[in-house]
Design a protein around this nucleic acid. Structure first.
Length: 570
RNA sequence: GCGGGUGUAGCUCAGUGGUAGAGCAUCACGUUGCCAACGUGAUGGUCGUGGGUUCGAGUCCCAUCACCCGCUCCA
């Protein structure tokens, strides 16, 4: 069902976005020639551009535009000890039990007793822990799983980029002579062997993270007037929230949600999630800002005082050869810094931005005769729906299975009549209601009317990705108005070459001008330039803007300034 | 992993046991030139994969893989 919040209308379903992604080269299913491999996706020519743009926008915001953050790119494979002491080997797992009777699977920590919630049989297996980390080995090992030799060479593909930052805390601090507070930012792949991935690229087994570990004074060293860990946490939540808004996410579809105590990860004192209102599955986390305290740096340190181990529920680390602490020259004290961690999913961000940007718009007035015909059929649809609703209620009163849901039908009828009254402007809404509304299911008149309305809507509609220019995979398209006119083609190609050193530029001459514009709308290209006969006379071209479809005549010498300004590159 | 659904041309889908189709897209030639133009022609599918039933399988059966919707998930 379509989202009613926000204006104008964003994607109604992940399916729309999926289709567009596949058709236009954003995201393809992985290993396709072999029938695919669960939950791995490949990023096509436009996908890699857009994902890079997301990561660049993040990097610019948290590294370049700040005075207190440095970058890092750590190895994906790290010593197994990292994951032993970070707690991931022991706790980054879902404890699962199977029902011997009905073969249902449940999370052990979600059960209240030892009976199966599905069939009630007291036949549950003991809990088995499915660790979410992918295993591999360093060196040529072919030993049996779990053997001493196997364990000795075992490594994990990192399930989060954060630990690479903790390993390098002291390196970065010393090599750049940084003083706390400061942060380290990293973008990179992470891997989790999810038991149930899904929702396109929302939850995958290989994904990309954008993480910051921001190191601050522990509470006991904070002087009056300095920010506490809670204040830093709150500030980062606001900073990060505003970043999403600055790239075009509508406020009504982004929220901050503080996690309940029971939800918190083993390392976290407090976590606030940023959630985006996705189509189909609703609110989904796109970023988490955690207060990780001094848990991680202490966990990886030798010689941690017993009182700190006790406070953090840690064991003495006999493997570590370093203490990951810091001498604070102002406080004249040595301490293990606390950490605020804003951690976002880059691939998830791309999905959120795509959903947000996806729009279908009426671009021309539908023929009045056809609109009248549709309008005339609405009362019959509503009448029939009412009838079916009453039948369903009767059936329900007699405890017979009902074919319809009266409540859904009621909301459908109200919405349909309301939308129909606003035809023809509401043509897309009417089409969406007839196609998607739960109350419209299995109604004969709807089945007859829907294809007609959908067809008409499609004929009068364009699909446009209203991406923030920073995120758009292609920033500019250049068209020759006449492709067999050598002089026009020359100028168009020259323009393409002039700008392709700054950003991705498309050149297309394989259709009429209207279709060329539509193609670019669909992938979110902010500007199209058309070269025509007039160009040859006065050196001007037509610049057409994606969202407004407005055109203006611009001197070629002014193009660079105009484009840079409007693409936010100035 | 369990339940429900889907899988046919690049895309959207039709095809319910009898010679694999349509629209769109793509390519060529011609025509047109500022918002999804037109004509003619062409390319394109071992019907997800592997078995089975049958004289004959896209269609029926079994298995398997992938995706979607639920259970689950903490980027």
């Amino acid at each position: 069902m379509r989202q009613t919040r926000g204006d104008p209308m964003p994607a109604r379903s992940i399916e729309q976005v999926r289709n567009l992604c596949k058709r236009r080269g954003f995201v393809f299913p992985g290993s396709a020639a072999y029938g695919g491999l669960g939950s791995f996706w490949d990023y096509g020519p436009l996908g890699v551009e857009m994902l890079n743009n997301v990561k660049k926008a993040w990097w610019r915001n948290v590294v370049y535009e700040r005075d207190d953050v440095e970058g890092l790119d750590a190895a994906i494979l790290m010593s197994r000890k990292v994951w032993q002491h970070s707690g991931h080997e022991a706790t980054f797992s879902d404890p699962l039990v199977d029902c011997r009777a009905c073969h249902a699977r449940h999370r052990a920590d979600h059960l209240t007793d030892d009976t199966c919630p599905k069939c009630g049989a007291p036949a549950l297996t003991g809990p088995r822990s499915f660790n979410l980390m992918f295993k591999s080995h360093v060196g040529p090992v072919e030993a049996a799983a779990g053997s001493e030799e196997e364990m000795a060479s075992r490594v994990y593909l990192r399930p989060e980029t954060a630990q690479g930052i903790f390993m390098n805390f002291a390196h970065v601090q010393r090599s750049l002579a940084r003083k706390v507070p400061f942060g380290i930012a990293q973008v990179g792949k992470a891997f989790r062997n999810e038991i149930t991935p899904g929702n396109f690229i929302f939850r995958t087994r290989e994904f990309e993270q954008m993480e910051i570990e921001f190191f601050i004074k522990p509470p006991q060293f904070v002087q009056p007037g300095e920010k506490t860990d809670e204040q830093w946490h709150a500030e980062w939540v606001e900073q990060r929230y505003n970043w999403w808004l600055s790239l075009g996410v509508e406020e009504g579809r982004l929220r901050r949600r503080a996690q309940e105590a029971a939800e918190l990860a083993h390392y976290s004192k407090a976590t606030t999630d940023l959630e985006y209102l996705f189509p189909d599955f609703g609110w989904g986390e796109v970023e988490g800002i955690a207060n990780r305290t001094d848990y991680d740096l202490s966990a990886h340190s030798k010689d941690v005082p017993p009182e700190d181990l006790k406070r953090l529920k840690l064991e003495t680390n006999a493997d570590s050869v370093e203490k990951l602490d810091y001498f604070d020259p102002d406080a004249k004290a040595r301490y293990v810094p606390w950490v605020i961690e804003p951690s976002a999913g880059a691939t998830r961000a791309m999905l959120a931005f795509l959903c947000e940007a996806y729009h279908e718009e009426l671009t021309k007035e539908p023929p009045a005769a056809e609109v009248d015909a549709i309008r005339a059929e609405i009362p019959a649809v509503v009448k029939n729906a009412d009838k079916k609703a009453k039948e369903a209620e009767k059936a329900r009163a007699k405890n017979e299975p009902a074919k319809h849901d009266p409540a859904a039908i009621a909301t459908f009828c109200v919405a349909l009549e309301e939308a129909a009254a606003r035809l023809p402007q509401s043509l897309l809404e009417v089409a969406a209601l007839l196609e998607d509304h739960p109350g419209a299911q299995n109604l004969e008149p709807v089945k007859k009317l829907a294809p007609k309305v959908v067809k008409l809507a499609e004929d009068c509609t364009r699909v446009v990705l209203k991406l923030h220019p920073t995120l758009a995979p292609v920033k500019l398209a250049v068209f020759p108005l006449k492709k067999n006119e050598a002089a026009i083609v020359d100028v168009a190609k020259r323009l393409k070459h002039q700008f392709q050193r700054f950003f991705r530029v498309a050149y297309d001459d394989s259709a009429g001008i209207g279709r060329l514009y539509r193609r670019q709308d669909e992938i979110g290209t902010p500007f199209c330039i058309t070269v025509d006969f007039q160009t040859l006379e006065d050196n001007t071209v037509t610049v057409r803007e994606r969202d407004t479809m407005k055109q203006e005549r611009v001197k070629m010498e002014d193009l660079k300034h105009l484009l840079f300004t409007r693409l936010h590159m100035g």
